[in-house]
Amino acid sequence: MMPRRLARALGWAAVLGGFYVFVYLPVAVLVLFSFQDGRLPVPPFNGPTLAWYGKVLGNGRLLEAAWNSVVVGVGSSMVATLLGFLAAYGLARHRVPGRRLIHAALVLPLTVSYLVIGLGLLVTFNAAGLPKSLLAVAIGHLVINLPLCFLVAAAQMGPAEARLEQAARDLGASEWQVLTRVALPLALPSLFAAFCLSFTLSWDEFVIAFLLTNFDVTLPVVIWSMLRTGLNPETNAAGTLVFAVSLLLVAGAELVLARRGRAAR
């Protein structure tokens, strides 16, 4: 008879194994059939080819959209991180009347679907006579990322940091010096994390970009339009490339944070 402990361990292994198969199945299929030597990315697998990658890398519209996504992501995330930090600093360190209300208003966009935010901007920009553009998309992404950056920065404004700022004032630092020499350097690691999170969400955001762009589009919008051709190994190749780039960026960010963490220790 099998010992009960072993049976139990096998049971938990099955739970985890099943979960990982479920989680990896679509990605594995996506990547595998990006190398499909044939017109359909479904079994049977006909053997490897890099033809589809060649096609993707020759697709100017895709590359241009990828660059647009980088510009929109970096721009909106930088502004979101900066404004989020300033707001968190102001509300945490000064007794502003109605600060709970301001806090709530700044976090509110988190509870609203991207679709509604995008639609609201579309209607408003239309009424104001502003054309669809990448700038409009960047504004939309600023709206969705500002609450996150604000919350991340606010989490870094605890009593320990407040004491350090007080110590700086005691030593003669002006308010500006307190901000630039103490508060900002202390918050930097979490601001970097907020920027990365923000960029990731912007990079991957579809609905707002879909509603607010016409000709210059972002990467998710181009991929979306590729789906109209149905199942196609070229889409697999494009998706795999995006995946690879994302993983590289994540690994790079992890490395930066890990190095900073080690330096601080």
Partner: peptide
């Protein structure tokens, strides 16, 4: 304000700047 007072404080947890 503290910045202008001719006092300086050694805080309980020292409040040293970790950066």
């Amino acid at each position: 304000p503290p910045a202008q007072r001719p006092t300086a404080t050694v805080f309980q947890d020292y409040a040293l700047f970790p950066h």
